[in-house]
Design a protein around this nucleic acid. Sequence first.
RNA 1: GCGGGCGUGGCGGAAUGGUAGACGCCGGGGACUUAAAAUCCCCUGAGCUUUGCUCGUGUGGGUUCGAGUCCCACCGCCCGCACCA
Length: 858
Amino acid sequence: MTERFDPSQADGRWQRAWDAAETFRTGDTDDGRPRCYVLEMFPYPSGRIHIGHVRNYTMGDVLARYKRMTGHAVLHPMGWDAFGMPAENAAIEQGVHPGAWTYQNIATMKAQLKRLGFALDWSRELATCDPAYYGHEQALFLELYEAGLVYRKESAVNWDPVDMTVLANEQVIDGRGWRSGALVEKRNLSQWFLKITDFAEELLDGLGTLEHWPEKVRLMQQNWIGKSQGLQFHLKGSNFDEAIEVYTTRPDTVFGATFVAVAADHPIARAVAETDHLAAAFVEQCRAGGTTAAELETAEKLGFDTGLKVTNPVSGAELPVWIANFVLMDYGTGAIMSVPGHDQRDFEFATKYGLPIVRVIAPSAEDADLPFAGEAETGEGVLVNSGWLDGLGVADAKLAVITRAGMEGWGEGKTVWRLRDWGVSRQRYWGTPIPFIHCDACGVVPVPREQLPVTLPDDADFSVPGNPLDRHPTWKHVACPSCQGPARRETDTLDTFVNSSWYFLRFASQPADRPFDPREIARWLPVDQYIGGVEHAILHLLYARFWTRALARLNQLDVKEPFASLFTQGMVTHETYQITRAPTEDERRVFGWDDEAAVESVTQWLSPEDVQRRGEKTFERATGREVAVGPVVKMSKSKKNVVDPDAIVERYGADAVRWFMLSDSPPERDLPWSAAGIEGCGKFVQRLWRLFGQYDRNAQGDDKPLARKTHQAIAAVAADIEALAFNKAVARIYELTSAAEKAAPSADRTKAIRALLLLAAPMMPHLAEEAWALIGGEGLIAEAHWPPVDPTLLVEDEVTIAVQVKGKLRDTLTVAKGAPNAELEALALASEKVQRALDGAQVRKVIVVPDRLVNIVA
RNA sequence: GCGGGCGUGGCGGAAUGGUAGACGCCGGGGACUUAAAAUCCCCUGAGCUUUGCUCGUGUGGGUUCGAGUCCCACCGCCCGCACCA
């Protein structure tokens, strides 16, 4: 037994031992053990692992190792979400091929993960940019196409005219491309779509079955799907020939409609704009209007009166038709009936343009003429000023109007969804080629299965902007599979969210000739525990749910929900450090600050490595000047408050880092990284090592209290790990450690140390293996069994009960467990402290909770 | 605006309606040492007239023998969505 545990030796030795023994390889054979599929969201190979990955994968790893110890066959795989724009940007900026860049990053990051000792089945490693992966994705895409779930349509996209590419909404900042800074244009392109809206109802209902998902995520998805029920009806033009279709969720307020508003892109608006140049100018103004969140928030309501009138089908009133900038063309029918009395947007609009505001809902029938208090009233009430609806409640009135509209034929109840079909076309090189061929004679033709995979050409040119596939000299020119005539390949690639929509299936089984083996899917899916960041709450998790359901509809698999249990972990945060100093000569020159300029000091961020704590204060290492310690925020390069996992592992060993990731903060909350914290973890690793060194197989004698604590800890740590409450499991291990350290040698102490080793094994696997070997444990501790709990040792035979007088603690009593109430009461009343607190007052009532407390009410 | 979450020591946080602050970090004191590091022990919510008492879980009410926990109202912070008819 060496004095200190040396991770620089031990970590690598055990990592190699696990590899050699294929300890974490998941077999294909069914050996009768219950199965458990633990999965963390696979990383994008951006270059290096960051500390957030370490936290995510440590949590999954503890669960996977624990499940293995409790007799489960565990599937715990890892792979790479390897397609995406950063690789292409690297190609543009550094001249490296996206594939070379990606595989280099994968090699680096895989080595980093190995250094942390994760119990992963690397034999199932996959990279989505591998044709062996994306070829199957193309096959699945064709299946969906044949099932009618894939289609093409013209759609407006954000087009960056400098980079010559389509941008996602998130890449448009203040109307400009995030990279090029060019003003983004709206362009209509023919794009590929997946019919996720076909599954809107299913995806919504399915949320109800996901009881082990965070409520928050389910609500976010529910809002995203956005089901609304209402009435769609038409209003006949009274001074023109057509009718306008509107959609409302408040049919009860139809008598209160005082105008109709249409979107600027609505056919009616366009028609008016053709003959009226003022209208045309207004429509143009709406289109040019900013689309950023900030602009929308402050955007003033603007309208244009078309002069057209329509008739309210219930009241016969004539309503003017306005074009309004707040009406969206792609929701409902792109036209609304406006009820300013009971809709805030309509209220603002009506107030601005002097349109009438009518009350149709009031607190009671007597309040029919109550004035409005400067805003719309959207609450409950009874219908007033509404003809045959008067006196009804809101819900009844909604039904009544929908029923009547149906009978009279001017409208019908309708469900409208916020969810849009999923546009999957990207005008990019580094993605899955969409397996279709465009033929002038035959149209759009799927690539025959036997020609899959459609692979990316290696010799793409990234020196000029635009899609390298589109301008490749030969790649896209192929023969039409149908008529053999000259044709062109589709040059769009698939959204990378498609790659991550089924990787969890491929992990479960990897046949060469098919995407997956349905029998293995049936065995492993759904994923028992999925762990990742909440930033994927909507898109990735919704797409994966959709993809799984789509395949289920095609009878390719028998699972509806891919992830039975979801956990979203918090971020890793760190203090920030800032220093204020005089500008350097270089800065004065570069930024043009001459001596007269008022720039006397600059503020800059310092990285944690550049600062040093001394007592309560923090100083810059290099200069010794005091540093301002800023708030604890998410680690980011711009604020320099990052720590590099490799550096930390190098210094403290993998187990200390893993332990830190699990300690203190509940896993769903943010974890503040600190130098003092990791230092403490490093010390605890050594402390445990010293305790393990005291393992004495020959020790004799009982230590009942320690045996109790041991079994209580085993039960508690197991429950905590199952609940992913790692911080609590950590606290239990600290407690048992302290108790074992203080105890005198005995057989029970030896058992406690052995149990402690097993409890710590999922969290500090290297230390545990090293100590296991030393105490002569059989095989690898990674394959050992979780220690059994003796239930008789879980209960104490003595309990400390609280004695209260009028609810205030006055004394405690130590009594035998299960002592009768009368005895407790007598003991409590006999207490000197109780008598003093009572001060002679008459006892009115005594409440006794067995094994808990006595409360004396005077 | 809508929806959700969270407010507990200097800090991260524990606590089936039943002894608030487990456990860790920071801080203080001591032991060992020529000295330091390492390690170990003790103290560490606030206040007071300190055998003990009072106050204390964002604020104000309420339910209860008893509330951090349940109910009502309010304040503050965080997250998501956002002109979705």
